[in-house]
Amino acid sequence: MVNPVNNMPELAQAQSQGQKMHLPLERTMSSIPRAASGSSSSPMACPVAHGSSDAPDAPKDPAASAKVDQWEYPSPQQFYNALVRKGWETPEESVEMMVSIHNWINEEAWAQVRQWEEKHPGGDRSSLAAFTGRPQDLSPKARYHLFMAKLFPSSYASIRPFDRHDWTIHRPTASGAGGSSYMSGGSTQPYTARRYVIDYYHLPNDEDGNPVFSLDVRPAVDDLAAVQERIAKWWDLKKETVFGSTGGASNLPPGVRVQEER
């Protein structure tokens, strides 16, 4: 059975055939709000292609029920099952660390989405409605940077993204024709659906051996408003490069350089 929210099959918590090591079944709640229109009676899986909706029934007490409105990351066991299903050989003893890094990267991706969203009325209450993993599909921007790296290797990096996601965001809009409230909440809250493209880059490890990633998070060019947003952001970065403290061009991949901390 395929989950329509993340286009992935549901993954059980049972151990995979041939698995030798016990992996934790506990799942971590993310900080990423889940759109009410995509909600169900149980927490959904994280915004990466490893999810499952086989979590237990939603808690009944009011304090705990608020957790249902957040996306939930997969357990290490579910994560490992996803890797096995894809045919990837992964040391079982590394899975828990991989899950920690995976969760941290998605928290950073959401933080970057929020920076875009909070520029708009109601954007501070935007939520993630659905996502699609597209690791085999190069985004137009990634393809452009790879092409330019062949012509201008000192200014562009010839690094291919190791993953791509498309996230669909629901941004609350004013209630009613002349309304100004963004706080009605629930499945009846009016919203505008916006798509974001996220390219994930793995950079060389730092001097201490910690992994370093670069996330390129931006609105998908689905309409004129998104084009205007992207151009405005590009111009801000260009001014910072020329007049700011960056000191000139960089051949790092596009996006935000982030580092996994231990």
Rank of each mutant, 00 (worst) to 15 (best):
Asn3Pro: 00
Asn6Ser: 08
Asn7Pro: 01
Met8Asn: 14
Pro9Ile: 03
Gln17Asn: 10
Lys20Trp: 14
Leu25Ala: 12
Leu25Ser: 13
Ser37Cys: 12
Ser42Asp: 06
Val48Phe: 09
Gly51Tyr: 01
Asp54Met: 13
Pro62Met: 09
Pro62Leu: 09
Asp69Val: 07
Asp69Lys: 15
Glu72Leu: 11
Tyr73Asp: 03
Ser75Asn: 07
Ser75Ile: 10
Pro76Asn: 03
Tyr80Asn: 07
Glu89His: 05
Ser94Lys: 11
Val95Asp: 10
Val95Cys: 02
Met97Lys: 12
His102Ala: 04
Asn106Phe: 05
Glu107Met: 09
Trp110Gly: 08
Gln112Ala: 11
Val113Leu: 12
Gln115Pro: 00
Glu117Phe: 01
Ala129Phe: 05
Ala129Glu: 09
Ala130Thr: 07
Pro135Gln: 14
Gln136Met: 11
Leu138Ala: 01
Leu146Gly: 06
Lys150Met: 09
Ala157Leu: 07
Ala157Val: 00
Ser158Thr: 06
Phe162Met: 08
Arg164Thr: 15
Arg164Gly: 10
Asp166Gln: 09
Arg171Lys: 06
Pro172Cys: 01
Thr173Phe: 06
Gly176Asn: 06
Gly176Val: 00
Gly178Asn: 15
Gly178Lys: 07
Met183His: 06
Ser184Gly: 06
Gly186Ile: 03
Ser187Phe: 08
Ser187Gln: 09
Thr188Asp: 08
Pro190Phe: 02
Ala193His: 03
Ala193Phe: 07
Tyr196Glu: 12
Ile198Phe: 04
Asp199Tyr: 07
Tyr201Trp: 06
Asn205Tyr: 11
Gly209Asn: 14
Gly209Pro: 00
Gly209Ile: 01
Asn210Trp: 07
Pro211Ala: 06
Ser214Asn: 10
Ala225Val: 05
Arg230Cys: 04
Ala232Arg: 14
Ala232Lys: 14
Trp235Cys: 09
Asp236Trp: 00
Leu237Ala: 15
Gly244Ala: 05
Val256Thr: 15
Val256Gly: 10
Arg262Asp: 09
Arg262Gly: 09
